[in-house]
């Protein structure tokens, strides 16, 4: 199996070191995202944590890159679903099988909760949108969702390993159709189909679309 979500790996030594630092930081931040929902809401330690984070942010924000600069150079592996550098991503790292089907295993914790002890319907939709988009653009090109339909067959429990699956169904010019499921205990809990559109290649778009893993 080939991991499909880390294709646009950094190339220079500085970029490689930067990506490594971001990934390690994100892993610890992701722990904190989860742990904040597991401590008492009035724990006095929360005040210290807020202060410590404040100091760290201050350090990061000085000097800072402008937003425009960052958007023009979005970096790698940053998206909110698969992005190992993004603390809000579970992250879902997809692998491609011989027939092109993408799969990942993930276990959702408290930050992804909607109804009690179940995954939020919006989170399932977010995951489906993302993995379908990766199925349409496995090499990391920019792709836009045009239409997404998500069906919820049974509640998706937290704290159990679930399988996320996606595949490309059809392509017609710049239109691509993909389908996918979230499966728990061999049963489909969520299924989805989506229509995705590749942007028209233009001289202005080419440099932006080619320097990172994008998806919609």
């Amino acid at each position: 199996m080939t991991v499909v979500d880390n294709l646009s790996l950094p190339v220079t030594d500085v970029e490689l070191a930067y990506a490594g630092a971001l990934e390690r930081d994100a892993a610890q931040l992701r722990r904190i995202v989860d742990l904040l929902l597991r401590v008492d809401v009035d724990d006095p330690l929360l005040l210290d944590v807020a202060d410590e984070l404040d100091v760290l942010s201050e350090h990061l924000e000085n000097p800072t890159r402008t937003v425009t600069e960052t958007i023009r150079n979005p970096g790698w592996r940053h998206d909110p679903v698969s992005g190992v550098e993004n603390a809000i991503a579970p992250p879902i790292v997809l692998e491609a099988g011989p027939d092109g089907t993408l799969t990942a295993e993930v276990e959702f914790g408290l930050p992804y909760q909607g109804p009690n002890s179940f995954v939020h319907g919006g989170i399932s939709a977010m995951v489906m949108d993302h993995v379908l988009s990766v199925a349409t653009a496995p090499n990391g090109g920019t792709i836009f969702t045009a239409q997404l339909t998500v069906r919820y067959h049974r509640p998706l429990p937290l704290f159990v390993p679930v399988a996320v699956v996606a595949r490309l169904k059809e392509r017609e010019g710049r239109k691509l159709w993909a389908t996918g499921e979230i499966v728990v205990d061999g049963k489909v809990a969520v299924s989805a189909e989506g229509l995705f559109i590749e942007p028209r290649p233009t001289p202005a778009q080419a440099p932006v679309g080619s320097d990172g893993r994008e998806d919609s």
């Binding site: 909110p80 949108d129 997404l148 679309g209 994008e214 919609s216």
Partner: peptide
């Protein structure tokens, strides 16, 4: 972010 400068579709 999903595509450059845009909110992720998910």
């Amino acid at each position: 972010q999903g595509p450059p400068a845009a909110v992720h579709g998910g």
